[in-house]
Design a protein around this nucleic acid. Structure first.
Length: 814
DNA sequence: AAGCTATCCATCTGC
DNA sequence: TGGATAGCTT
């Protein structure tokens, strides 16, 4: 009895066809990961392939981790030398070694979306483009598409720049790329594009990797974009042992450049490809599959296949309609509790609630809190997007890559050290003139001479960084972070700021330190070992889904996109409304491909369910400030009625009554208004202790980061008294506006402010001509003495009459 | 310099 | 709705 006996006929043929191009069309739940892992085992054990020569590419780190784990179990030893990684981290790894051959430095930084936005905004400003007529977002997305299609700025200009808009984009793209290069930074798309560029530019490097990766496997092939396609094509160019696995019905990343043609045309590129279809599903009941099949068959462009299962008919698909979204959310929360009570074998982690947009999570969170259901939200606000984390990372980046102006700017005055916008502006100008980077300018005597008193502060800052850099040479990453926190007085400043969540933020920094520690631990045995740039890279490339703690007994809330590749006994799909899902945009799109993509997303959602699938619909829902009414999603209507336990008809609403829905008719409608929330004390089950504090979703909601996994939540059963549900952790969920509030170092500020300004008498009198930095010249009409300052009224020649305070206006006598 | 307010505005999905 | 920002006030 061998490990391969457990495979079905098709799976076996896919495993054993080791040579040449192979296309595995793997329907949802058809055991494709099993096929890949067994194929790797087969290559090593039966074909004598060196594990070193095998490359397996997945889309997320989580998938990579799981795959490696499973391979470890199948393969005796040597599995650690198999490359299992995502496209992005594979490219980062290759570039860390060889990018100097195409003119970057190997200590490059990786920019995330926020960094990109900062850069592009700057550029648009420089180009004199009004952000109103051309959104930075849109420009970035055009640049991203270009990169995904391997179009360089030069070619973009030549081929694309026809109208004004495209010319601006061409200009911005070029400038953007220059900026990144001078900051020695790459964005996500660069990782792919520059690796292709490297391979094309340097035969030696290409041959090295072609020879290294004699056997290549790519998971989720339907979601590859042109750059990824080209990368793979180049890598497999010599041995042609390329096995791709995918499901065209699950292609859901078109907006990110994924080209479904990559999978549909695989056989055209490789006419000798061996093609296998896996249609036997091992995950879901027949009813779930029938629903999925019924929906997806409405798509025209697909390699048709029909899933089948031996797991029995199963329950009907549940459909529930509600008048309002809060009712929908309340139902889901209560239904989870109901199932938990009914079936003691279930635990919270057996449930997932899926939705189209992240914004939908809030309402669900509220209701889950009310029902005392522990949950985790995947995505939304990322741990690494927190201000304190970004600050720390900016310090690390500055230490690691001195030329990254963006990182330097972020921390130059955080915590407050009296280096203001004016000083930074002057130094930036100097740097631009001398075409040097900001940090070097700050170290330059000539530059310091030009900024007066502030130069002392700047010197202190650069000395601090230089000291960190020295420290980093011998210290571990975790100790470096500790050192930075200590030397910058970050914690004290935070506490002094009187910010409400200062302690949470400090806890987050501790969390970052432990992430650094576990990174270092994981690299102990690896080739390159732990490095600062390695840590920054890992941090930059994690996806939301990667951070979900295994073994955490919580209901998972996430977008349909995040759910790809996962499975749950109970799945809820919330917000099944035309206009939300499929989205308005896709419906209005002239191209019906748009709705087809949404349909694939629906297919992905449905096929996540193993046993119970519940689709919910809310007739009305608050969206961006006002109430929206929608009909039932076409995807629900595409499911044959006999598969549903309830007819998909909207509750009788009174549309003409606008907002005044009649709540008294409804059994569970008391939680629509604010009043309703509070009066809910009578509530269902296990909510004791929650009435008053429970509503503070801030301190409860998305906390589940890291440490939250260890709060012993996994042990209690439904109905048990739950008193201490409030985790110690730390991660303050998305909803806070506190988030971006600047660092208010109250004490420091008042100290600095205390002395100056107030008493200084201006050197001009009424009737004098004065000059203002912004308004130009004018005549002083009136000067009044205030307790704190002098109030000056000036009639400017251009700008008209202004009242200002002498200390701030800094008027010069002409 | 920096907080505060008033106003605008855009909305999906994510490595 | 709430986040981002420009402009005004202190």
């Amino acid at each position: 009895m061998s490990i391969y006996d457990s495979l079905n006929k098709e799976q076996k043929s896919a495993v054993m066809q080791t040579e040449g191009p192979v296309l595995i069309l793997a329907g949802a739940g058809s055991g494709k990961t099993r096929v890949i892992t067994h194929r790797i085992a087969w290559l090593i054990d039966e074909c004598g392939v060196n594990p070193w020569n095998i490359l397996a590419i997945t889309f997320t780190n989580k998938a990579a981790g799981e795959m490696r784990e499973r391979v470890d179990k199948l393969v005796g030893f040597g599995s650690e030398s198999i490359w299992v990684s995502t496209f992005h981290s594979m490219c980062a790894r290759i570039l860390r070694r060889y990018i100097d051959r195409i003119g970057y430095d190997t200590s490059f930084a990786i920019y995330d979306t926020d960094d990109q936005k900062t850069v592009i905004k700057d550029i648009l400003k420089k180009l004199g483009v009004d952000p109103k007529e051309m959104a930075p977002r849109a420009v970035l997305s055009a640049i991203s598409s270009a990169k995904n299609e391997l179009v360089t700025p030069l070619r973009y200009r030549e081929d694309t720049a026809r109208d004004y808009r495209e010319r601006v984009i061409a200009e911005a793209y070029d400038e953007y790329q220059r900026t990144l290069r001078s900051n020695n930074a790459l964005d996500f798309d660069d990782l792919l594009m520059l690796t292709v560029e490297l391979f094309n530019a340097d035969e030696e490097v290409l041959h090295y990797y072609q020879d290294r990766f004699k056997y290549i496997m790519v998971d989720e092939y339907q979601d590859t974009n042109t750059a990824q396609f080209e990368l793979i094509r180049l890598l497999a160019g010599k041995y042609r042992n390329l096995c791709v696995v995918g499901d065209d019905d699950q292609s859901i990343y078109k907006f990110r450049g994924a080209n479904i043609r990559n999978i549909l045309d695989f056989e055209k590129l490789y006419p000798d490809a061996f093609v296998v279809r896996l249609e036997q599903n091992y995950r879901s009941t027949q009813n779930v599959l029938s629903a999925a099949n019924a929906v997806i068959k409405n798509n025209t462009k697909r390699k048709s296949k029909t899933l089948r299962t031996d797991l029995g008919e199963g329950s009907l698909i549940h459909f529930r309609a509600f008048q309002t979204a809060p009712e929908e959310a309340a139902f889901i929360a209560q239904d989870i509790e109901r199932c938990m009570r009914k079936d003691r074998k279930l635990s919270y982690k057996d449930f997932a609630v899926l939705y189209r947009t992240n914004a939908q999570s809030r309402l669900l969170e509220e209701k889950l809190i009310m029902e005392s259901v522990p949950y985790n939200v995947v995505g939304g606000t990322n741990f690494y997007e927190r201000r304190e984390i970004r600050d720390m990372l900016a310090y690390l980046k500055t230490v690691c890559n001195a030329v990254d102006d963006l990182a330097v700017r972020r921390i130059i005055n955080v915590p407050r050290r009296g280096i203001g916008a004016t000083t930074i502006g002057r130094m930036t100008d100097f740097a631009a003139q001398q075409s040097m980077n900001l940090f070097d300018a700050m170290c330059d005597e000539l530059c310091l001479a030009g900024i007066g008193r502030a130069s002392v502060k700047v010197k202190e800052f650069t000395d601090l960084i230089l000291e960190f850099r020295e420290f980093a040479k011998t210290a571990s990453v975790q100790n470096l972070i500790r050192h930075v926190v200590e030397k910058t007085n970050y914690e004290e400043e935070l506490r002094a700021s009187e910010e409400e969540d200062a302690e949470d933020r400090i806890a987050n920094i501790d969390e970052l330190i432990s992430k650094a520690a576990s990174y270092e631990e994981s690299r102990e045995l690896s080739e390159e070992g732990a490095t600062l740039s390695g840590f920054l890279e890992e941090v930059a490339l994690i996806a939301d889904i990667d951070d979900v703690e295994e073994g955490d007994d919580r209901v998972l809330l996430m977008t349909l996109h995040s759910a790809k590749g996962l499975e749950f006994p109970h799945v809820y799909m919330a917000g099944m409304e035309d206009g939300l899902f499929p989205s308005r945009m896709s419906i209005d799109d002239a191209d019906d491909d748009a709705v087809e993509e949404e349909r694939r997303l629906a297919y992905v959602g449905i096929t996540r369910a193993k046993e119970e699938l519940t689709l919910t619909y809310a007739m009305s829902r608050m969206m961006r400030g006002d109430v929206h009414y929608s009909g039932i999603s076409r995807f629900v209507l595409e499911i044959p009625q006999e598969l549903l336990d309830e007819k998909p008809v909207a509750l009788s609403g009174r549309r003409d009554d606008s907002m005044r829905l009649d709540f008294d008719d409804l059994p569970d409608s008391d939680d629509f208004s604010d009043r309703g929330y509070r009066s809910r004390g009578r509530g269902g089950h296990g909510s004791q202790g929650y009435g008053s504090q429970g509503y503070d979703s801030k301190s409860y909601g998305g906390e589940g980061y890291g440490s939250a996994g260890y709060h012993g939540l996994s042990s209690y059963g439904a109905g048990a008294p739950r008193t201490d549900r409030r985790p110690k952790a730390v991660y303050v969920p998305p909803h806070t506006k506190e988030e971006r509030k600047p660092f208010i170092a109250k004490q420091a500020t008042s100290l600095q402010k205390g002395m100056p300004a107030a008493g200084t008498k201006p050197d001009y009198v009424e009737g004098d001509r004065v000059r203002h930095i912004k308004y130009g010249e004018g005549t002083v009409l009136k000067i009044e003495e205030n307790p704190r300052d002098y109030k000056v009224t000036v009639m400017f020649d251009e700008a008209g009459q202004k009242i200002m305070y002498a200390a701030f206006a800094r008027l010069e006598k002409v």
